[in-house]
């Protein structure tokens, strides 16, 4: 039984056909990297999985819940699907701890004390336990992104969507964020990443999905796909990024 099931999903922006029939099954515990050029539809696909973007045709089912573009359904989904963004999107007026506790308190309705325990746990997991009372502006980009991951983990999701989460970081800060993802993968968290980190995709990822012109152009076991691309488009892409 797949955790995420994408069936013939199409998406149009006006007359622009960005997703042209995507089919994917992603099982629990899988680490899936979606790669491809900008404009190939990777981020759109990712955003269709948690309802941030409405798809035009087809169907998406996550954790036995149909993903429809509706506020109430998206709120239900938020308990199964976490998301981390390229631009961190931490709430600047709240401390790290408050950022993390906000959703557990408001959405899971946990009392302050329990939310705090969760905040401490997830912060320890990303190695930032001592930053609980800091404000986002006081942290480096890498630390902010680790807090954003911790904030998602506090909702105890079954799958974590990562949308180019290292692309806005200085090169020397990328490693600490990828390390956190690696630890999560080792713990069995299901990860779906849109990424340009080919080494991570190969070494940590189980499966690579190469998107091109709104289609899944090539997919398979990450080491095999990246070492032996079957299509000229993918070999060209790999040569360009490596």
């Amino acid at each position: 039984m797949s955790l995420v099931s994408i069936n013939n999903v199409h998406k149009y922006y006006g007359s622009n056909h960005v997703l042209k029939g995507i089919n994917l099954e992603i099982g629990a515990g899988e680490v899936v990297s979606i790669i491809g050029r900008s404009g190939s539809g990777k981020s759109t696909l990712l955003r269709c999985i948690n309802g941030l973007e409405a798809y035009s045709e087809g169907g998406v089912v996550v954790d036995q819940m149909e993903v429809v573009y509706d506020d109430r359904q998206i709120r239900k989904l938020s308990k199964s699907v976490g998301m981390v963004f390229q631009s961190f999107n931490l709430f600047p007026h709240l401390t790290v701890g408050q950022n993390i506790m906000l959703a557990p308190k408001l959405v899971r309705k946990l009392p302050e004390s329990e939310a705090k325990v969760i905040a401490q746990e997830v912060l320890a997991k990303v190695g930032l336990a001592e930053k609980i009372d800091s404000y986002p502006a006081e942290l480096s980009g890498g630390q902010q992104q680790r807090v954003a991951i911790a904030r998602s983990l506090a909702m105890n999701p079954k799958v974590l969507l990562c949308d180019e989460i290292t692309s806005a970081l200085d090169p020397e800060l990328v490693g600490e964020v990828l390390k956190v993802l690696e630890d999560l993968a080792a713990e069995g968290m299901t990860l779906i990443l849109v990424t340009h980190e080919m080494n991570f995709a190969r070494d940590v990822g189980d499966r690579v999905i190469f998107m091109h012109q709104g289609l899944v152009w090539e997919e398979g076991d990450s080491k095999t796909v990246l070492a032996n691309p079957q299509t000229p488009e993918l070999s060209k892409f790999i040569n360009a990024v490596l």
């Binding site: 941030l52 506020d71 998206i74 709120r75 906000l102 408001l106 959405v107 998602s152």
Partner: peptide
């Protein structure tokens, strides 16, 4: 979008 994915109401 962050608030939305965390499940906060409008």
């Amino acid at each position: 979008e962050a608030a939305r994915t965390l499940g906060l109401s409008r």
